[in-house]
Amino acid sequence: MTDRPDLGWLLTIVAAVAFWGWLLSRWATDWLLAPLGIGPGRGENYLSPAPLEDAAGTFEGTAAAVGPLRVRVDPIATVLDGAALAVEVAPVLADGAWHTIVLTAVSLLLGLAIAVPLAVVRVYGGPFAWFALLYTELIRGTPLLAQLFVLYYGLDLAVWLNDVDVVGRGFVPEYAFWIAIIGFTINGSAYQAEYIRGALESVDEGQLTAARAVGLSKSEGIRYVVLPQTLRYAIPAWTNELVYLIKYSSLAGFITVPELYYRASRIASTTLEYTPVFTLLALVYIGLVLTATDAMGRLERRVAVPGLGGGEGRQQARTEGE
């Protein structure tokens, strides 16, 4: 640790606090406080964008007035305009971000739950390996959007889900959201299974042999010896999948799930402010992706074992092996 405060570190902390402070307070306002009558109410702005708009108007006016001096104040006006827009759409984006986060996190975890057995069958399943291969190639070989359309329009899932009482009531999202979860889970499971298969195959064969020599059955050996190593090896690839999924989840917008992209594109098409709206959208996605990468890095360090997989493990083994 250095004594000088690290500027980059400081800025990261400020940005993280601002980003998550905004999201968390917004969700708290919408779901916890609004029903109690506290705060501005569900989906209502904290601040009024009007002063920012006025200020922007002033600068635009000034630009014309000081024109001969060639002082460019237009950019300031543009920034103020953007800020006004940001204040205006922030509540909607926060709600979209909630859908994006839940969609991503739930699909990733459910996908993992399917991917692990799938990869094990692929590697150790003998005659059943072809089934896992078929599933993986079928899912990976067809477009995600097509899969979502089949689930949404082609099957009776929507009808069936609509009959479930809780769907679409209060806190619980509409049926389209659940269809998206199913789609992303299936799609993600195929990709994750491939990552895990690669990691499984990188575990030395002798590990399972040694486990069996101790008297563990093959499945116990896989469970207690091979998989704990595999999942550590798979974390970097898994991080990749998470980062992809945060952005791929925007495809759910095409089946009317009100996630980030859907919300932003709706605003853009009504206000016609495409560039500023999608710039704001990009900032929110970047915030989510950076958070996800950081969280996975922490997970990797937390489960690191010297000499195995993750960065920390590799480093420790190197220094202590010398």
Partner: peptide, 16 residues
């Protein structure tokens, strides 16, 4: 295997 112990050339300790 429960009654017979085995020691390997490449040792094969459980790495994790």
């Amino acid at each position: 295997r429960g009654r017979i112990g085995m020691v390997f050339q490449d040792i094969n300790l459980f790495t994790h």
